[in-house]
Design a protein around this nucleic acid. Structure first.
Lengths: 348, 348
DNA sequence: TTGAAAGCGCTAACAC
DNA sequence: GTGTTAGCGCTTTCAA
């Protein structure tokens, strides 16, 4: 490959504007202590020459890298992709994260790491060393992994923990899963259901517990028992098993809330296999509003998780932290909502 | 924010191994002219210290940036995302691109640019200046945009053109849309259909033409007429209109091939609105095997486009080009396949 | 085969 | 307010 052509550098701008490098640098970084008139002149040169700073050079100079890393679970992400079932989590993260990054001159880089790997620290350290990101977004189940959070804290890299509320360093963001579970449960209660089951996610995810709490509190507030609980791993097979377990009881639920899209469609299939009609024999709520759940028959009532928005907020927090804003306070909550579709109906 | 802690740099490794910086650099970059014994010693130090080179510094030193940019159409990508209908194109690109990048120590960065913008060159130049990627992947309709390809060629940045066959610089990759259209058409012919319509994509996409050619050649080979042609813009509304147009004819098709997921589900809806049963009154083939088309009723027979694999191949070509391999020759073809589902049946 | 010197583009720290 | 100096971590010369 031939060498790259001559780039426009800060030097060219400085020469063009007849000022020092430093002044140009100040203008680029919107620092104070530059006369407006001077700033304008420099900006004019920048525009004329079409100068854009190299982020590699900026990073080398000791400033930011303008890179934010989104860390996802490798196994789950790849599995979802291969299925082409796109839990669409990554898609939504990319949307929210990347657009917000772009607004601030940052880029988002998606990285996958093994959750259950003993060399997780090495993998993460390598990524941090290579990229030197200005911030990291952690998604469950990484969000509360002390190996990860510890490393990040130690290296003084701002990070956001999505879906985690346990104490510790890092910004915390949630979609208020507990409240979302309450919404879903109350929706079924209002339709007259008295036996409402929950297929929870794996205990390794904090949000699995929150959803159980929300479901339980709503159930109890209605004076009902909370024994219709099963657990899956978010995957289809486990959802099918859990649904069978619930539907096979002597007192089966008339309404089921499934903690993931895959478990919801598995429940749909399990109900159908038993000759049960959804929604008339069993109502079903999915905890994920993916493209798929809107095209099943019937389309599923679902908890809409604002993944894109949460990621956008995470990016903003990280960039603000970079800029020196030492935000403190509680977690950022972007509440999920319930979208009612054909899979829930009044109890027969 | 406090400063970052001391990183492990090439200096530490050099000191640890008792060699010069240059020797370490040679080992990192697997250059020849290093005695095996020496290389081993240096590698041992690298491993022990957990050293990973900074890509910013590598880039500054005049070497690669280890970054590959995937350029997508802003408006379409955002619209798809917002719908949460994920044409899942970006998802699949990210999968294929990012995993392959990771294998070679590269990262993939997704960038969005406006296709129909007059400042497209400025947008692109800015991204190139900031990131200095080692390669760029162009997706339709950017793949044959001379403003873009010209700029890239001029700056000597290797790039891959997905879904474009027109002459010019850059690697060309296709999923053999023409053949895919033949497959879809022949499938319908084998089912006994004699009136097979095509809802083509917009002419601005090269692949729209290829699909028309494939459909036409198969139709003609069967001795049939090729007048059942309508055009959409890949979106739902245009697909609905096109479907109405075809189905409203005096001699409506008994089989329709739609050039996108959205146009396929629009056709499904249009058929249903006319009281037509799919597949018994009209058979339907989608040109995109997204999560959604497998959950419509009936699930759609679809052309499966190997987006992830094409992107993976593109990444490999770009990295090889970086390394000096001046590959020449024809386009890389990763053929699409047909998956038969419930939306196609023998003609009644 | 190895090492020393210079420089990539930018910013921090300091001087003016 | 503005300019000067030094240096980030690495790779490219070039010399040994």
């Amino acid at each position: 490959m031939a060498r790259r052509p001559q780039r426009v550098t800060i030097k060219h701008v400085a020469a063009d504007a007849g000022v020092s490098l430093q002044t140009v640098s100040r203008v680029i970084n919107k620092e104070p202590n530059v006369r407006a008139e001077m700033a304008e002149r420099v900006q004019a040169s920048i525009d004329r020459l079409g100068y854009v700073p190299s982020i590699a050079a900026q990073r080398m100079g000791g400033s930011r890298s303008y890179l934010i890393v989104a860390l996802n679970d490798r196994a789950r992400t790849i599995a979802d992709w291969r299925n082409r079932q796109g839990s669409d989590w990554v898609d939504q993260m990319l949307l929210g994260g990347m657009l917000t990054c772009a607004e601030h001159g940052y880029r988002l880089i998606v990285e996958l790491v093994d959750t259950h790997s003993d060399h997780i620290e090495r993998e993460l350290s390598a990524a941090l060393a290579a990229l030197q990101p200005d911030g990291v977004i952690l998604t469950p189940p990484h969000s509360h992994n002390p190996l990860i959070t510890g490393l990040l804290a130690e290296q003084n890299i701002p990070f956001a923990r999505v879906g985690s509320l346990v104490d510790g360093p890092g910004f915390r963001l949630t979609m208020d899963d507990q409240h979302a579970a309450v919404l879903a449960t109350e929706h079924l209660l209002e339709l007259g259901h008295r036996r409402i089951g929950l297929i929870a996610g794996p205990g390794e995810y904090e949000l699995s517990g929150w959803r159980i709490q929300g479901w339980r509190s709503a159930i109890r507030a209605a004076g009902l028992g909370d024994d219709l609980l099963a657990e899956g791993d978010f995957g289809y097979d486990s959802g099918y098993t859990a649904a069978e377990q619930l539907l096979g009881r002597a007192d089966p639920p008339t309404g089921i809330i499934a903690s993931s899209e895959q478990m919801a469609i598995a429940t749909l299939a399990a109900a159908r296999a038993r000759g049960l009609d959804v929604p008339h024999d069993v109502s079903l709520v999915s905890f994920d509003d993916t493209p798929i759940v809107r095209f099943t028959h019937p389309p599923l009532t679902a908890v809409v998780q604002p993944i894109a928005e949460v990621t956008a907020r995470a990016v903003e927090l990280l960039i603000a932290a970079q800029a020196g804003g030492e935000r403190e306070g509680g977690p950022v909550v972007v509440p999920a909502q319930l979208t009612v579709r054909g899979s829930t109906a009044a109890v027969r």
